[in-house]
Structures are given as C-alpha cells and as structure tokens.
Design a protein around this nucleic acid. Sequence first.
DNA 1: TATGAATGAGCATTCATTCAT
DNA 2: TATGAATGAATGCTCATTCAT
Lengths: 194, 194, 194, 194
Amino acid sequence: MNTEIGSKGKESRRRLLETAAIEFATQGFHDTKVSTIVKKAGLTQPSFYLYFTSKEAIFEELVTNFYSNLRKLTESLRLVSGIEQIDVSKRVLAAVESVFRFLGSDPHLTRIGFFLSPEAIQIKSNLTLVLKENLLAEQRLGYFNPELDMDIVAECLTGMIVHLTNSYLLPGTKDSESLAAQVVNLLINGMLPK
Amino acid sequence: MNTEIGSKGKESRRRLLETAAIEFATQGFHDTKVSTIVKKAGLTQPSFYLYFTSKEAIFEELVTNFYSNLRKLTESLRLVSGIEQIDVSKRVLAAVESVFRFLGSDPHLTRIGFFLSPEAIQIKSNLTLVLKENLLAEQRLGYFNPELDMDIVAECLTGMIVHLTNSYLLPGTKDSESLAAQVVNLLINGMLPK
Amino acid sequence: MNTEIGSKGKESRRRLLETAAIEFATQGFHDTKVSTIVKKAGLTQPSFYLYFTSKEAIFEELVTNFYSNLRKLTESLRLVSGIEQIDVSKRVLAAVESVFRFLGSDPHLTRIGFFLSPEAIQIKSNLTLVLKENLLAEQRLGYFNPELDMDIVAECLTGMIVHLTNSYLLPGTKDSESLAAQVVNLLINGMLPK
Amino acid sequence: MNTEIGSKGKESRRRLLETAAIEFATQGFHDTKVSTIVKKAGLTQPSFYLYFTSKEAIFEELVTNFYSNLRKLTESLRLVSGIEQIDVSKRVLAAVESVFRFLGSDPHLTRIGFFLSPEAIQIKSNLTLVLKENLLAEQRLGYFNPELDMDIVAECLTGMIVHLTNSYLLPGTKDSESLAAQVVNLLINGMLPK
DNA sequence: TATGAATGAGCATTCATTCAT
DNA sequence: TATGAATGAATGCTCATTCAT
C-alpha cells in the first residue's frame, strides 16, 4: 500500500476489480472468496492485499464506482431537463431510456450497487430524487396533473425501473429502449382506453 | 430421536422460527449465526438441530411460509376478480390494497421472502402472474386500453408494490390504504392533466 | 463463552492454561502457536476459543494469575513485618526467603510475569513497593542506616532477586534458602571485612 | 551482487541499523516489521536484503555490536583494576560508574542486548565475570570480607545494575554517577547503622 | 426435550522474502 | 544501488454441526 503503483500494478488492480465484480454479482458477498478472486485474476492472495486493504474494501470500491457513475448520470439528467424537446413524453422517455442504458451498461456493477450493497437504499433514493425533481418541473409547467404527489410518483418510477432491470434488462430479455417506451407510456397515459 | 414433538417442543420450535425471522430479516442470511438465534430463543445449539436439519432449512421454512401465505393471497385475488364491483378502479384498488396489507402483516417474513431469498424472483413472479391475469380479464372486458402489454404492466405494478413496500410500508412510514390508492390512481389515470 | 462450564470443561480449561504456561515460558509469546497449545492439551483449535477469547486473553490470564498470587504474597509480607522476631536480619531474611520460594513455586508463571509480560515493570514495582515499606519501617525503628534512600535499596533488592531468580532459581541451580541467605547477608552487612 | 559497498550504500546500511535498533528496542523483535524498518529508513524492502540476509541477521548484528562494545568495556575494567587508587570504594565506584555510563550511552542497544536478545544471559554473565574477577582481586588483597562468595556478589551487583538501568537509567530518571554511588555505597557498607 | 463439550473445514489476513528490471 | 510486483507459508479465528449424556 506504501509503494507507488506502476502500470503493471494498475493492470493487476484493474483485473482484481473486474474479477471481483463478477464474483460478487454472481455469488454474493459472503460466498465470494478472496482466494477465488485472486485465482481468477491470475494472482496470489498476498497480492490482493497489495491493492486492497480487505475484502470489504474492494466491495466498497465497486459500490462507490457504481454510485459515482450513477451520480454522473443524474447530473446529466438534471441538465437535460432544461433542453427543449417537442413534448413531455419525449423528454421523460429520454430520461428513462438513459437510466436503463446506464443500468444495462455494466450489469455486474448494477447488481452490486442496486441489490447487494448495504447502501442500495441510499443509492436508489438518489435516483428517485432526480426523477422527482424533473417531474416536479414538468408539473409546475402544467404538463402533469397538479394533484399528483411527485414523491410517490418518483418512487413508483424507480420501483418499475429497478424491477424491470432485474427481470428483463440484466437477464438480457429486453432492451433499454423498449422497456423505457413501455414504462413511460404506461406512466403518462395510464391504463384507461382512449 | 424421531419421537413426535410435544407441546413444549412445539413452543421451542415456534420460538426458534420467530427469532430466526427477526435475525434473518435484520442481519441477512450469512450474518445471522445459529448461535445467536438459539441464544435469543433461550435454547442451546444442539436443540436447534432437534427441530431443523440446518441453518438453510430454517431459512427455507420461513421462505416457504411466506410463499404459501402469498399463494393463499393470490388465490383469493383470483376469486375476487369475479365478484361484482361498481367500477374497475375499485376492483383494482381492492386487489392492490390486499396485497399491501398482506406484505405489511409480517414485515420480517416479507423482507426474507422478497429481498433475501434466492427464490425472491420466482416468488415475485407468482404475484406478477395473478396481477396480470386479473388485469387481462379487465382488459378483455374493455376496461383497459387494448394495446397495453399486460405482461409489462403487471411487472410494473409488482415493481411499484415491491419498492413502496421497502420504502414506506416496512419502515412504517405509510399505510397500505394510502399506498394502494396512489399506486392505483397513477396506474389507471396516468400523469396527464384531466 | 455463553454456556456454563461444567467439571469436564473446567478440566479442559485448566489443561489449556497449564500447557499455555509452559509454551509461553519456553517459546515466548509469538513463537507459541495456538495450534501447539491445543495439540499438547489434547484438544482442537475451536475448543480453545470455547474457553478463551484469544491468544492474548489466555496469556493475559496467566499474567493476572501470577500478579494476583504475587499480591497475596506482598500482603502477607506486610503483615509479617509486625510480627516480633529476634533481630532485623532474621526478619528481612524471612521476607526474602518467602519471595524466592514464591518465585520458585511456579517457574513458568514467574518467567511469564517477570520476563515476558508487558506489565513486567509494573509487577516488579509492586514487589519493590512492599519491600521498601518493610525496610522503611525497620529504618524508622533505627535498625538501618538513616541516610539510606530506601527507594534505591528496595530497587536494588528487587534487582538482585530478579536476577538470581533468572540465573539460579529457575534453572534449579540453587535453592531459595541459600539464595536468600546470601542476598540478605550481603545487603545488611556489606562487603567490608569485620 | 557481490560488489563492494560504496559510500551511498554504507549510508543506507547505517540508516537501516539505526532505524532497526529503535524499532526493536521499542517494539520487540516480532512486532518489528521489516516493512516498517525500511519505510522509516526511506528505502524499499528489497534494498533491505542488499545489506542484511534476514531480519534475524540485522537483529543479530545489533546484538553483536552491543556485545563487542561491552567486551571493550570489560577489558578496560580489567586494566583499571591494576591502577592505583586511594581506597577500595573509589576503585569499585569507578568501575560501576563506567558500566552505567556505557549502558546509558546507547539505550536502544542496551535494551536489545540486555532485555531482548536470546543471548542476554550470556552477555550479562560476561559482565558478571569481570566484576567478579575485580572483586576477587580486592578480596585477596584483604579489602573485602574473605567469607563472601564472590560469584554471588558479582551476580547481585549485575542484578542491581541491570534493574536500575531498566528502572532509572534508560528512562532517564537518574544519571550514571548517582546510581553508581548509591549501589556501591550499599554494597560495600551494607545497611546497618554506623 | 435438552445440553455441555467438542470438532472439521474453511477463510481472511500477515509477513519475510525474492524475482525481474 | 535500487525498486515495483509478487509469493510461500503460516496463523488466528469462526461457524455450522455433532457426540455423549
């Protein structure tokens, strides 16, 4: 931990992170053994501790990576809301689509951050928050029913996204675009016949 | 060894299940120790194995309990759909409300069955299935937009229910009735202004 | 750690303490392995942790045992000082002799308490203190040179005792009585010819 | 690999020895890590093995340094005994004083040689030996009580010196001169009133 | 029905040491 | 003369589980 890490070390460290992500995502935290990680990364146990202080630490780093990526996404969502778009549906659709695309971009990390980490609740609520803000802005502009409690709406949207991610996106059964389209259509138009 | 369990034994067994449910729900499977369960249940470790063959077994029994309760609920939902009700909203509301009430009735078991068990996906899909069937029936009767893919709608509904359960119901922040009302209103009417 | 310890358990615990004392005394703390202790005590590693929370804990218990035995001795020395004795030499001799006898009674514990434990300094200073008090009492009664700094004298006496214990008593080269006699004679009469 | 050590290398080697002495003296052998030594010496682990074959080796070298310094001292003590001095007390005092001064000159090395090394007993007995020889010479000249067993007297003197070194000299509470004065006075005159 | 005592199997972590450069 | 990277070999400790009573 003392010595500076050169390019070879960085590569080893990267490989450990990558392998660990797969293991954690598929086996869970406890059933993932340090011995397995290093074996699959082509290293030995002591090397692991050259780069990470503990099994907890590498897990936490993965969670943090996911979280900070998610934050970048939510930042961008906040900005997008200002950009002009033809109609509300399209604007919301674009947002939800980008969320699904993000979640599908690194399935292992998503599984870890959303379903395995103790901070999952906090992480999800970060997403909920930005969704709510955008929805509130639209509501103020008169695009949405003013009686809706946007706290709940945002939670519902998060719930749908999380669940569909688990059911269709991570297994690869459906793609981000079609999921987003259906979620947004349902949410905006409701179920009643036209 | 294989003698029938008397009343005292039944009581011990019940206490173990009860304690285990709390521990599993709050600590997770791996961080729950058999030693802790028995200590809190006022027994010793060997006694545990008088009633359960393993730590996995008691966990599985809790999951099974949750699952079979859920099945009873879904059976009742199927029946209810036949019963006459003034309008669609009321019928759907009644269903969603009963689901929330069920999920809130034993929070520890819900947490275990929905969030901790490896069968969580299967269990949720059982709920999704019955929701879908009911929605399909209404759709066939013309109450819902015929273009809606009820598979997705049901998954979305499940997603909302699961997430709100986690965010509001289990922590006790909101009650089943208000949660159900808001979910159903949103789902049926959508977000557009009237 | 939870369950009450019955007679069989007490015996196992005693055996572990006994074995550990030998190992620590002969190998030192770090070179004593828990695996060795349990093997020599006829047990397995987990059993060790049934009775002691850690390797540090069993070591500390041995140190504490030594220390509390020593305290009993020093208490008795304090009392003895009141008892009438023919002359000073005899009184001092009796005290020093009892110290040597104590130190020789459990050589392993003595080695641990005096030479291996981090509290060794404190433990020795406890002995020094009681020696000083007794010497001071005699000095006040006019039996000793009033110019002597009894702090230093007591430290010197402790130093002699500790060193001779290490050089002659623990190896078994000389016995308590002769060691005490020579130390006391030297200390009281000095080296000058009569 | 086997090249001579240049001035830069000598400096590194010296720094390692110096740092190691501090670490060993304050942490003990096992709790001193090679990684810590090199870090504090501003080097890396492989460099350590450029100068010392093992952790044991550097420790041994420190012990040897102490031992050979001590031998120089004992040689000088042997010589001094021939030099004329006004009276016995002064001669003995000079000897004890020089011992204390030596022991106080490099506290870390003293701690290592006297209290940490496995050869501590042998090292101390070297000191004891020369003290005994000097005392015996004086005794033969009639300056000391002919009945005294000089083996024991020398051991006692060593014990006092060692203990006072630990209690007062190394902590810096008292200086060599006053310690020597009190030890010698006590030893020569004894405790009885004049 | 219950328990005091014991254990097999495993796991994270540490550290002195070395290889290749 | 120096170091980034890596490792062999241990070791303390935990936990679910069982034996004998």
